[in-house]
């Protein structure tokens, strides 16, 4: 009996993911070894210094006195059973730490990408259809401004304007700690805390998708099949909806998948700026603190995420473009 093609395809992609993740993990491990200092140095630094014998004992306890390849084999061996190890900095299992932090990052990324995609496609389609009009010029210019602005700078400007000057939105964090909200009030509070991070992270992508969609719509509008639709007597609105949009969205969807990884990178900046307790911020801290287990866990999780998202994008793309066959 044959497997349904979609399952066979998914299985093949999963198998392809294994070597990818292996390479990423080993690479990260070795890169961390290249950087001077280790976790013990960081801990001792926090303690304000310690004698050489104590440091040596700590290294022995954590297995840091072993050759690099032994450490690597030990780590990979545990990883094979999905044991991510213990975070000595946060004093809890890495898996708990990750599961705790992941929802915040996922929410931030999902909200940002959705906003960027929907807003970008809608604005871009409108601008493309009314190309070179005054409104299009305004949208395109604004798009260029946001596209050119680094997200940390945008985040700073937003904090200055909306939190400090106007006082409308909280400066950072995920919830108002002093308020002890529960139930729907807590959710609302968290949503309010997410407004600025989402905006700061998504605007650059929104601007980018808008510009891409605009030029794509202009290009598709000049294709022969659009002329065919006019020759059939189809009105312009219908032509836009049925003939232009779907064809014009293809390059945007491709980029959406490709850019997921950079959005993840952007979350590091945004989570740090807005003090959001997500995995991106955790990654930043574990690099500083040399918390190797935590960092490796994060790298594992994020490579898995990137691969999964690319897989989903390919599925969407195959669905959107009838010419693509999954193989």
């Amino acid at each position: 009996m044959r497997m349904p093609p979609i399952l066979a395809y998914a299985l093949r992609r999963l198998l392809q993911a294994v070597p990818t993740i292996l390479i990423v993990m080993v690479g990260t491990f070795l890169l961390m070894q290249l950087a001077p200092g280790d976790m013990v140095d960081a801990l001792v630094g926090d303690m304000g210094g310690a004698d050489a014998a104590f440091i040596a004992r700590m290294r022995q306890e954590y297995g840091l006195d072993q050759p690099v390849w032994v450490q690597l084999m030990r780590y990979m061996g545990k990883l094979a059973t999905f044991d991510f190890g213990w975070s000595y900095v946060y004093e809890q299992p890495v898996s708990t730490l990750l599961l705790d932090r992941l929802p915040v990052t996922l929410a931030l990324m999902a909200a940002s990408l959705t906003l960027a995609f929907v807003g970008g496609v809608a604005l871009g389609a409108w601008a493309g259809r009314h190309a070179y009009s005054a409104a299009d010029n305004l949208i395109s210019t604004l798009g260029l401004v946001f596209y050119a602005m680094p997200n940390f700078f945008l985040a700073l400007l937003m904090i200055l304007l909306f939190s400090i000057h106007l006082g409308w939105l909280p400066v950072g964090g995920l919830r108002d700690i002093a308020a002890f909200h529960t139930g729907w009030r807590l959710w609302l509070d968290m949503a309010i805390h997410m407004i600025m991070p989402v905006a700061a992270l998504s605007l650059i992508y929104l601007a980018f998708y808008m510009r891409l969609m605009r030029s794509s719509v202009i290009e598709v509008s000049e294709l022969d099949f659009v002329r065919t639709a006019r020759a059939k007597g189809a009105p312009e609105g219908r032509i836009m909806r049925h003939h232009i949009m779907r064809n014009a969205m293809l390059p945007v969807v491709t980029l959406l998948g490709l850019q997921f990884a950079t959005v993840l990178g952007g979350s590091v900046v945004i989570e740090t700026m807005f003090a959001l307790p997500g995995i991106a911020q955790l990654a930043y801290n574990s690099v500083i603190r040399r918390d190797l287990n935590t960092l490796m866990g994060i790298v594992f999780l994020s490579s898995l995420l990137v691969i999964a998202v690319n897989f989903i994008t390919d599925l969407i793309y195959a669905r959107l473009d009838s010419r693509i066959e999954l193989r």
Binding site: D224, F225, T228, A231, G233, R246, N247, S322
Partner: peptide, 19 residues
Amino acid sequence: RGDDMAMIFQEPMTALNPQ
């Protein structure tokens, strides 16, 4: 258009919507 007067174009690959 399409009802009383209809048109056939040169390149049917591009004149039909691929999707």
